Amino acid sequence: MMRGKIKRALAGLFVLLLALCLSAGLYVGLKGYGMYREALEQKPLAEMAEQVRAQPDFTPLDELPRLYRDAVVAVEDHRFYSHGGVDFIALCRALWNDVCAGAFVEGGSTITQQLAKNLYFTQEKVLTRKAAEAFMAWAIEKQYTKDEILELYVNSIYFGSGYYNVRQASEGYFGKAPAQMTPYECTLLAGVPNAPSAYDPAQNPGLARQRQKKVVEQMVERGCLSAAQAREALTPG
């Protein structure tokens, strides 16, 4: 009899926890959707894209080295060309790591979500903002192609040292236009936006090169570089 009571108590506790989780998820989703709608009303997607493209130092995607584009996708969002704006595999992995750590240690954001965050929301790590970011990412994916999204992304992210797009960063760090970047410079620059203060090549060259090695490793793992090409990408000059 005692065993039966314990089982019923555990079952009741499970149902209660499940109900609480569902309620919390619904609340976060509704609040996030409200934030998304409000942001979109203040700045429609077309206006957002035009604002980025109107920058005097905007760089079209076809003026960026293929190696740089591959490096960005490999290290930031390797399923970029196959997901619909939110990578649920990466999201679940990040959620598990966050739960294990008891803090926000991994984001799981896609390139599209990062674009949404940079142009519409704050950097604050709260669940309602993450939900709003996901809704905005889905909207962006419906309106723009993957190449257009990548183009907007590299023209609106922070690279450290006061550089807010790929041209500013390339000219500031290397003294050249993005199209002229070497494989070494492409892989070095691709690693910076993950943590601009830490990986700023001018301020923390050692950390920047450590991050660059991670970028190159990811490119080799994804089949973007051969071993010989990887060695070239890690060689200055």
Rank of each mutant, 00 (worst) to 15 (best):
A90W: 09
W138C: 02
I140T: 01
H78P: 13
E151G: 00
G34S: 13
A24E: 10
L18H: 10
M35C: 00
D77M: 12
D57A: 00
I89T: 14
E41A: 10
P56E: 08
D62Q: 14
G162N: 07
V52D: 03
E76L: 09
L152H: 04
D200Y: 10
E106G: 02
E232D: 04
S23G: 15
K214F: 07
A46F: 00
A74Y: 10
S109K: 03
L189Y: 13
G32H: 02
L150C: 03
Q180M: 15
G12I: 12
A190N: 14
P201F: 06
F159P: 03
P236K: 10
L207E: 12
V73I: 15
K142F: 07
L67H: 00
F159M: 10
A9G: 08
K5S: 11
H83T: 08
G162E: 05
Y36Q: 01
Y163D: 00
Q113Y: 07
R209Y: 03
G223D: 09
Y158W: 13
P236H: 09
T182P: 13
R209K: 12
G223P: 05
G162S: 08
Q210W: 06
D98S: 01
G4Q: 12
V215N: 07
F121T: 05
A233K: 04
K146S: 01
Q168R: 14
L115G: 01
A139E: 15
L152K: 07
A24W: 14
L17C: 15
Q143T: 05
L95S: 14
G172I: 14
S23K: 09
S156V: 00
I149C: 00
A208Q: 11
F88N: 06
Y36G: 00
V28Y: 13
C186G: 10
A9E: 13
V105C: 03
